[in-house]
């Protein structure tokens, strides 16, 4: 995946059974963002693979003041890339469950 400067990782082990997963997001390289992020914290949140989109979460992070509006796309892309990887991995490791 492209290096967006925003890192997203699983916050818990994925067993492929739940549609909701816990993710953790943090800024690795603030210079890649247009606006100034709120702080240096890691933001943990849950994401429903079946019902939600990365854009929804990115917008909520902006609404909550974590990121500037101009960074909506970069945050959404970072989440989207990680979610795509999780789904790809699920399909390979647990195809029967999917």
């Amino acid at each position: 995946a492209e290096d967006t400067g925003v890192r997203v990782e699983l916050a818990e082990e994925d067993h492929g059974r739940k549609s909701t997963i816990a993710l953790r997001l943090w800024v690795e390289d603030p210079k890649k963002l247009k606006g100034k992020p709120k702080d240096n914290g890691a933001i943990e949140f849950t994401f429903d693979l079946e019902r939600e989109t990365p854009d929804d979460v990115a917008q909520e992070m902006i609404d909550s003041g974590f990121f500037h509006e101009s960074d909506m796309k970069i945050v959404a892309k970072s989440i989207r890339d990680r979610v795509a990887l999780i789904q790809w991995r699920r399909e390979r490791i647990w195809p029967v469950l999917q």
Binding site: R7, A42, I43, E60, S64, G65
Partner: peptide, 27 residues
Amino acid sequence: SSLTQVVHSAGRRFIVSPVPESRLRES
């Protein structure tokens, strides 16, 4: 460690914790 919780009006909960130094990229 200090945790901050932010709840968006749509109901999603964000829990903010400090990033360990080892996870931050050196500039």
